[in-house]
Design a protein around this nucleic acid. Structure first.
Lengths: 135, 135
DNA sequence: TAAAACTATAAAGCTACTATAAGGTCAATA
DNA sequence: TATTGACCTTATAGTAGCTTTATAGTTTTA
């Protein structure tokens, strides 16, 4: 299988595949005489794993870490679970921060209607006056 | 006021101030004979405005847009309100996406306890098997 | 006087790609 | 046979919003 076909199967661009190879997330495949990369099913599985991790919001570094665990299959999987727990709490704190931000934005927005001049705009005044709850 | 003092007042690094100047968000200040930047209170207010916008999650491009409205104070402020409305809906969709992600991660995490070998880890299996709801 | 603390510019690094440039390879077509 | 089009190659730059590093000049302090 050549890179274009693999890309289509995985739903990514060919450059992304080369990028993952360069980052050490996908093993370098064999090459044809003309230099074209030749992929096997293993590569397909590896790429699918990476993509699913990315959809879950894991960083390339975290994916790398997971791969290193997979390479040593008789370890306890404590570290895998810990990685996920960390990621979950990271996601939760993002949600909390965004919810606080939303509140702030909505209250700012409520301080103006559209029928004013910029000079008297409640939104701009709200930002400029800086009675914001930091953090 | 020199750059270090302004930075301390605003709670940013000096490089950040130079960066904003380079990006056209802060007007270039006068210079002393030795080339040192000299800031006025106006710069302090401008920088404070930028930082509050950043805390609200606005991009530098959006801040630039707001500044352009401020430069023309007798326009109606419709565009300002629209910018904020867009930003609010952006934040809301981020929250929604993260909440869906959290659900997915929690259910994945529930598929494993720490007392297994990596080979049998429910989390890794869950990612690999790919019965994930895309999007 | 010498070190510490400040300032300056320029360039690279960070994340996870995406895009562009310039070119080599291959199969099918005119 | 010449050429078109689709594919492949590498290398480099761009994205956002800074942060870090390198190198060097200036001012303040001990």
């Amino acid at each position: 299988m050549r890179i274009g076909q693999l890309a289509q199967l995985a739903g990514v661009e060919t450059q992304t595949i080369r990028f993952y190879e360069q980052q050490g997330l996908l093993p370098p495949p064999d090459r044809q005489d003309n230099g074209y990369r030749v992929y096997t099913e293993k590569h397909g599985e590896g790429l699918a794993f990476i993509r699913r991790c990315r959809i879950l919001g894991l960083s390339l570094a975290e994916i790398h870490e997971l791969q290193s665990y997979q390479d040593d299959p008789h370890q306890p999987c404590t570290a895998v679970n810990a990685l996920l727990d960390d990621h979950i709490s990271h996601v939760r704190s993002q949600i909390t921060a965004l919810q606080a931000l939303e509140k702030q934005l909505v209250s700012l927005r409520a301080s103006c209607n559209d029928d004013r001049e910029v000079e008297a705009c409640g939104v701009l005044a709200g930002i400029s006056e800086g009675n914001m709850h930091q953090q």
